[in-house]
Nucleic acid binder design. Structure first.
Length: 245
DNA sequence: GCGACAG
DNA sequence: ATCTTGTCGC
């Protein structure tokens, strides 16, 4: 697939200020409402191609793995390795992991209808998390799936949720969005029958999706584990590339 | 100064 | 994210 807007390519700008300015542009360019056509039904039927993306690290390099699914079946895989240009900084993840991700996606011969990224989308200080950055860069519907919450506040307690339940995540005063704007959801993809609790996933739209639809799509991706199938497979592939099978 | 902080 | 043994629970 091809980058739609070269100016949004996540390469490391000179300063933190420059990176934050670019994120403000990303957020302004991102659409946080349904504007693409990809529906949960399309994901189920196989009418939509879903790409799961995840990274693994080796010393000073990052390896990004992409797995494309059509109705739960793997139809393509790609990967890319690039040197790390900066350390992990909360709020600037896209500038650390974006280069290998974009490179791996560019190597794809097919064009996914939905990108599922490991990290936040709109749940971000400037509403420009990894999923928004990559989604806007390719101008493709994207959703972010994080294992922990970067910012924002759950509308109610998120412990003891049943499988399938979701709780809105509202913007707090650390974010650019008006307070209480629903920027994503805590989504309980899996849960044990009793005692032991599994933490929920934090799903947020990256581009061309409303918060509710983003979560519906992740649910439609399925999977036997906590992470949605596309992400789980990309995670395994990345680890496979890192070690050597 | 204190607390919070995707991967 | 990554480094890792043991350990709790279905």
């Amino acid at each position: 697939m091809d980058v739609a807007a070269e100016r949004f390519r996540p390469t490391r700008p000179g300063s933190r200020e420059a990176m934050e300015r670019l994120q403000a542009e990303i957020a302004a360019e991102a659409t946080f409402e349904d504007a693409a056509g990809v529906t949960p039904a399309d994901v189920h039927s196989g009418d939509a191609l879903v790409a799961g993306v995840d990274q693994a690290f080796l010393d000073d390099r990052a390896v990004s793995a992409v797995v494309v699914l059509r109705g739960g079946e793997v139809i393509a895989r790609e990967s890319a390795v690039t040197p790390l240009s900066m350390p992990y900084v909360p709020g600037l993840l896209a500038f650390r992991e974006g280069e290998p991700i974009v490179a791996a996606l560019e190597a794809l011969d097919v064009d996914p209808d939905l990108l599922v990224l490991d990290g936040s989308g709109r749940i971000h200080y400037r509403e420009a998390g990894l999923a928004a950055h990559v989604g806007v860069c390719f101008d493709v519907p994207a959703v972010g799936v994080a294992k922990s919450l970067l910012c924002g506040r759950p509308r109610r307690a998120t412990d003891a949720l049943e499988a399938g339940e979701r709780v809105p995540i509202e913007a707090d005063d650390s974010m650019s969005a008006p307070e209480e704007t629903v920027v994503g959801h805590a989504y309980q993809s899996r849960q044990y029958p009793d005692s032991t609790r599994i933490n929920p996933l934090y799903v947020s739209p990256g581009h061309r999706l409303a918060a509710g639809t983003a979560t519906d799509l992740v649910a439609a991706c399925g999977g036997e584990y906590k992470l949605p199938r596309p992400t789980r497979l990309a995670d395994r592939y990345a680890d496979e590339l890192k070690t050597g099978r």
